[in-house]
């Protein structure tokens, strides 16, 4: 089955499990963080509809659920992207211009570090020391490492991944 269809099935299964966990913790405001952890694990993020259901069932306000969700950086409001870009801001990278690289990434992607793009393609994170200081400044995109980065190299890099995602989609449709 196609990747999308598989995702839908997985998602429905996840929702069934989430329903169960919410029901188990009904009326227990103290269970909020555990329940959010479970949702995060199953879905990769905590969508709004689930936030509402958690609020209604555990007996906490939606304001509190959202407050807890946004307080801890572990919880995500939106799904992570296909490509996780980690920009290193460790000491070596920092002194060799990592902040500029990060700024350019933020500009080109239109998001701030910690966020994901609306099209679901990229998540931008800041990390410390990838252990490739000789290649500073360094960023990784999923399993690929890019050394000696500069702001100017960013647009081309992003274009490459966009193209890769587009061609994968074409292959998928063709494969159906």
């Amino acid at each position: 089955m196609s990747e999308e269809k598989q995702q839908v099935c997985e998602c429905q299964a996840a929702y069934a499990d989430i329903d169960r966990v919410i029901a188990e913790n009904r009326g227990d405001p103290g269970a909020l963080i555990q329940v959010l952890h479970y949702v995060q694990e199953r879905l990769g993020y905590v969508p709004k509809d689930v936030q509402k259901k958690v609020a209604e069932n555990l007996g906490v306000s939606l304001s509190e659920v959202y407050g807890v969700l946004t307080f801890y950086s572990f919880f995500r409001e939106r799904p992570r992207g296909k490509y996780i870009i980690s920009a290193c801001l460790g000491t070596a990278c920092y002194v060799r211009g990592a902040p500029d690289v990060l700024a350019r990434l933020e500009k080109e992607l239109g998001i701030k570090a910690g966020d994901s793009t609306d099209d679901g393609l990229f998540t931008l994170e800041v990390v410390r020391c990838l252990g490739a200081c000789g290649l500073a400044p360094v960023i990784t995109v999923n399993k690929d490492t890019y050394g000696r980065m500069s702001g100017d190299k960013v647009p081309a890099l992003i274009r490459t991944y966009r193209a890769q995602a587009a061609s994968e989609k074409v292959q998928e449709v063709a494969g159906d």
């Binding site: 998602c11 429905q12 509809d49």
Partner: peptide, 21 residues
């Protein structure tokens, strides 16, 4: 409830992303 902050429960990720955009 919650004014216009309404969402249908159980929306699949693909649908929700379209709605979000």
């Amino acid at each position: 409830r919650h004014g216009t902050m309404t969402v249908k429960y159980g929306v699949t990720p693909a649908e929700e992303e379209t709605a979000a955009s």
